[in-house]
Design a protein around this nucleic acid. Sequence first.
DNA 1: GCGTCACGTTGCATATTACGCAACATGTGC
DNA 2: GCACATGTTGCGTAATATGCAACGTGACGC
Lengths: 264, 264
Amino acid sequence: MSYSFGMGNSETHSGSVQSVDRAVTILEVIARTGLAGVTDIAAELGVHKSTASRIVSTLEARGLVEQDQHRGKYRLGLGILRLAGATTARLDIVQEARPIAKRLAEQTGETINVAVLSDGAALYLDQVSGNASVQSHNWVGQRIPLHATSNGKVLLSGLSEAGIRTALETKLPTYTPHTVTSIPHLLTEVAEVVAAGHSIVIDELEVGLTAVSAPVRNAHDDVIASISVSGPGFRFTNTKVDAAKDLLVAAAADISARFGWREH
Amino acid sequence: MSYSFGMGNSETHSGSVQSVDRAVTILEVIARTGLAGVTDIAAELGVHKSTASRIVSTLEARGLVEQDQHRGKYRLGLGILRLAGATTARLDIVQEARPIAKRLAEQTGETINVAVLSDGAALYLDQVSGNASVQSHNWVGQRIPLHATSNGKVLLSGLSEAGIRTALETKLPTYTPHTVTSIPHLLTEVAEVVAAGHSIVIDELEVGLTAVSAPVRNAHDDVIASISVSGPGFRFTNTKVDAAKDLLVAAAADISARFGWREH
DNA sequence: GCGTCACGTTGCATATTACGCAACATGTGC
DNA sequence: GCACATGTTGCGTAATATGCAACGTGACGC
């Protein structure tokens, strides 16, 4: 057998189990493509079809992936959701924020997200949809740059100026014509967020997407998370954003209170 | 090496990758215990500590698990959330519910409907007829007020009291002499639905129409949809409703499981 | 309706890879 | 400070995962 070195992805520390590593890669490939066949997977891994088939088959027996029909393509399975449930169960922020986020979703009819700072990006931990009918997009687990979202700007607002500069020193991608990538401009915006206690962002990440965010703080006044209400611009209009903003700020204060924060 | 036969858990179809299977077991063990050490894991798998250590280490490198401190115990990682986000993104209530709804239609001989909450009304997404002979009515695409149907009451049962009041604050039409329009009365009924886990409604929307509904839930225990069995009262009698109720609740649990819900 | 193709699956032989062992770190409690 | 428990790491062995090739199946096109 000849194995291609340098999978480019994971530098195995010392003793790493190859097939397990490949299994995880397979899960990520399927997560990225949504639906993947054995041949595609094998090509991506650089292994023989049979190898991919066997690993996928193992994952299927354990419910982490499912196949459409017999001998069909593979997709992620419900076993993942059970694991995810156990994951969020240990996250304090999700536990404390969820009931309040649900209420906020009911009140606004829009989608609520909870994000935290993680390695210079906004990591989305939880999402509650206002209208269960059409799950527009699921951000959970995604890492989004800080400069293009309201959550990101709120999370930045909890940092020192030096911290902000550090967080923004990577390349800032442009997503739409409205994306702000100038550091001075961003610093000004973050200062405004600090003053206002919330952040409103329109069309900066996706055209047609409007979002408003507020900080969740702990007893030391640190910003530990950001919570947002977001929806399509045609529905989530200025007036509604303004109404949602007040509810959101109150909800964020409620959650903050659960972490020992007190208004001063 | 001596491997213990009969892992008792998974009967490997034909070619199954042992270490991948073990990795999944490890994830499940950690999910169950919340926090697990290498020694515990090794004992549970019936393998040597070193084996468990290496697999866990691989999972850690890929973000599926994390360890508390250096050389600490392991817990599930945030990488799981990325996969989960991709999983829920593809989940579609109609698609997941349809095979189970079809089976339920065959078992009961009556009509099955699936509805979700949408802007303060029940939006009917799918319908499966038991006996094609008398195609009663096609509800798909219709929006029905929440107070007059069993599906509506189930959907209300997933909301907070404030949310229920908001949803009911519009004018509540009277369809038949049996339609309930009193808010306190409806609140009591919804509380009963929460307790019972299902809703039975007779003649409230149309005289001669009997329906029983049960909630479909996700991993967070949110009510994401309602599924119903309904038929004409002269045929869908009390006894039959009672029998259908048990099948329905089981079917709803099946669908819920597909969204990561677990009985607790 | 038949031939061709593409795809997923499965015996089998090989040797690569994962395993158990034992020794080594590193805390932790008595 | 000693004994213990726990997580990690070389090392040699062989069990296990892999590639190969053949098979089963379904889809498409001629």
